[in-house]
Computed example of a mutant assay.
Amino acid sequence: MKLTAEHVYKTIHGAPILQDVDLTLEGGTIYGFVGRNGSGKTTALLCGGCVCRGRTTEW
C-alpha cells in the first residue's frame, strides 16, 4: 500500500504554511518527520489526516 499527496498547500490567516508539498509513503516502512520548530510538521500531518478544513488535495 502507498499513501501519496501532491501539491499540498495550506495557509493560516493568509500566511503560507505549506507550499507545493509532495509526499509518498510506502507501506511497511517506518518514517521520521524531522524539521525545525514552526516548519509545518504538525500542520502537514493534520492535513494528511483530513483534519484541515478546505483542503483540495487528494490523498
Rank of each mutant, 00 (worst) to 15 (best):
M1I: 11
M1G: 12
K2I: 13
K2E: 12
K2M: 12
K2R: 04
L3V: 11
T4D: 04
E6M: 08
H7S: 13
H7F: 05
H7Y: 02
H7W: 01
V8N: 00
V8I: 08
Y9L: 02
K10L: 09
T11F: 02
T11K: 01
I12C: 04
I12Y: 10
H13N: 13
H13I: 10
G14P: 02
G14W: 06
G14T: 04
G14N: 06
A15P: 00
A15R: 14
I17K: 06
I17V: 15
I17M: 09
L18T: 07
L18R: 11
Q19L: 04
Q19E: 07
Q19S: 15
Q19Y: 08
D20Q: 13
D20W: 04
D22Q: 11
D22F: 06
L23I: 10
L23P: 07
L25E: 07
L25I: 15
E26Q: 15
E26K: 13
E26M: 12
G27S: 14
G28W: 08
G28T: 01
G28V: 02
I30P: 03
Y31N: 14
Y31T: 06
Y31F: 09
Y31H: 12
G32L: 15
F33M: 14
V34I: 11
V34Q: 09
V34N: 14
G35Q: 07
R36W: 05
N37K: 14
G38C: 08
G38Y: 05
S39T: 07
G40A: 11
K41I: 06
K41R: 15
K41E: 06
K41G: 05
T42F: 01
T42W: 01
T42G: 00
T43E: 07
A44W: 02
L46E: 07
G49C: 10
G49K: 13
G49V: 03
G49T: 07
C50E: 15
V51L: 06
V51P: 02
V51E: 03
R53H: 09
G54V: 03
T56E: 10
T56C: 10
T57Q: 15
E58F: 14
W59V: 00
W59M: 01
W59D: 00
